[in-house]
């Protein structure tokens, strides 16, 4: 999956493209490593082109969310596709993340 990270002022915009599954989960983890280092995380994910996520992807998002909570920052997942949204819904992860249009 392609991950593009852009800093806009205090916000970090991350654009995701493609599928997030077990084959590329490690790469995703590396990609977001710099987000994990952020002391004042204010992150927005653009999921328009995110086609799919597996549980491994969910775990990585969860790791990021915990980090953001610890630093009292914010994390928003935007423009999710219905199928991906469904994954978050049925696993109960919609309760954990801020998911917006």
């Amino acid at each position: 999956m392609d991950v593009t990270i852009k800093k806009e002022g205090t916000k970090t915009m991350v654009t995701l493209q493609g599928r997030l599954d077990t084959t590329n989960a490690d790469l995703f983890q590396q990609d977001i490593a710099e987000l994990m280092q952020d002391e004042h995380p204010n992150i927005e994910f653009d999921c328009t082109d995110m086609e799919y996520t597996s549980s491994q992807g969910l775990r990585l998002f969860l790791m990021l969310q915990k980090r953001v909570n610890a630093k009292k920052g914010s994390l928003v997942l935007r423009h999710m596709r219905p199928q991906v949204k469904e994954v978050f819904d049925i696993t109960g992860f919609s309760n954990i993340f801020k998911i917006e249009d």
Binding site: S54, L58, R59, V87, G92
Partner: peptide, 18 residues
């Protein structure tokens, strides 16, 4: 019915009350 056809192997506790 929601899970059987997927390979999702992580669930949040809130699925239960949900």
């Amino acid at each position: 019915h929601q899970f059987a056809s997927t390979d999702l192997d992580i669930v949040a506790l809130s699925v239960a009350p949900q």
